[in-house]
Each structure stands twice: as structure tokens, then as C-alpha cells.
Amino acid sequence: MKIAVLAVQGAFIEHERKLEALGVSCVELRKAEDLNQSYDGLVLPGGESTVQGKLLRELGMFDTIRKQIQEGLPVLATCAGMILLADSLEGDATVHLQTVPMVVKRNAYGRQLGSFHTEAEFKGIGEIPMTFIRAPYVSEVSDGVEVLAVVEDRVVAVRYGKQIALAFHPELDEDQRVHEEFLRMCGEK
């Protein structure tokens, strides 16, 4: 199995390490030509969503990635990746890929000092560690969006079709179950 990791900005290396530890090969997406190869899934990492969205457009990757997701390519999106997938952002007219019908609030827990770690129930997996860094949360979901985790009465993980979007960073914790769940989804035909 081969997983593509968006590597234009952000915390992509940590996802690659986690996936490689699970026996998966990774390919970094840095330019439009990188999208011409085949892969079984896509990781949209944490980082700066505004910068990532801008680079996707400037590098000629935006339309292809959006089409791949719309056609069913499995996606694991963390933090900034969640923002990229959101249909709309609370209090912000900026939009990016718009492949999940949800409203996301950016930097919902404040700046860097608002970062925190907790453990909470993740639907179908059990209780897992969750590390939040300047994290967003989902303030509204539409029909068809499955809520996977809630922390402090806020939705922090959803699934829509073959897209999993998380406000936290499972790549920063020892637990591998979120990535394993993503890989199971990638293996489904």
C-alpha cells in the first residue's frame, strides 16, 4: 500500500514516520507532477491552512487533489487538513477544498498557549490520546457527516464518506489506532 502525504508545508514527516512504522510506503506530494502516480490514500497534515491552500493553488495541485477526493480517494486530515476539507469556516470567508459539508472554527482553542493534551472516546476505536495544537473544532455538520469524537462538548473528529478529519494530531502520540483505521479504509475497494 502506498499513501501520499501533502508535503508543501506543515507536520508531514510525523505522519510519514507513523505510516512507515505500520509497514506502508509513503510518497510526498510537493508539486503537480507528483500527483501523476498512483496511491491508495492521502494525508493532509497539520500546519498553516492558509499557506497550504495558497500553495496548493500556486503549485497547480488544488484541482487535481480536490477531484481525487471527490472521486473517493481516502483522506486523513489533521488540524489544518480539517480546515482545508471544510465546506465553510466560521467567521472567515476563506474556503479551500470544500469536500466535507461542515463548518469549522479555526484556532478555536486560542493561540499556542491554548494547546492541550487529553484522552477521549473515538467511535469504533475506543479511548485514545489527543494532542491539540492551536486546534480548530467542528461547529456544525450536515447530514451524512458522522461525528467520531467530542471533547468539551465540541466535535473534534468526523468522517464523511472516505474522509476522516481530526482537530487533533494522532501522529504526535504513540497510539497507532487512528492511522490503522485510515489504512483499513484505504484497503477497502
Rank of each mutant, 00 (worst) to 15 (best):
K2Y: 01
I3V: 15
Q9M: 13
E14S: 02
H15R: 03
L22R: 10
L22P: 03
V24L: 07
S25P: 11
C26Y: 11
E28W: 03
R30L: 09
D34L: 01
S38F: 11
D40G: 09
G41A: 13
V43W: 05
L44K: 06
G46T: 02
G47T: 12
T50S: 12
T50Q: 08
G53Q: 10
R57D: 04
R57S: 15
L59K: 07
M61T: 15
M61A: 13
T64Q: 13
R66E: 08
R66V: 05
G72R: 00
L73T: 08
V75G: 11
A77M: 10
C79T: 13
A80R: 02
G81N: 05
I83C: 13
L85N: 04
L85W: 07
D92F: 01
T94M: 09
Q98M: 13
M102Y: 01
V103M: 15
A108M: 04
Y109F: 15
R111A: 10
G114W: 04
S115T: 09
E121M: 10
F122T: 04
I125K: 06
E127R: 14
P129M: 06
M130H: 07
T131A: 14
T131N: 05
I133W: 02
R134D: 05
R134K: 10
R134V: 07
P136S: 02
S139P: 06
E140R: 15
V141H: 00
V141W: 00
G144V: 09
V147W: 01
V147D: 02
V150Y: 00
V151L: 10
E152P: 01
D153S: 12
V155H: 01
V156P: 10
Y160I: 03
G161I: 03
I164Q: 11
I164C: 05
L166H: 01
A167M: 06
P170V: 02
D175S: 04
D175F: 07
Q176P: 08
R177S: 06
R177M: 13
H179N: 13
H179G: 09
E180G: 12
E180R: 14
E180F: 11
F182R: 15
L183F: 15
M185A: 15
C186T: 04
G187V: 14
E188W: 00
K189S: 08
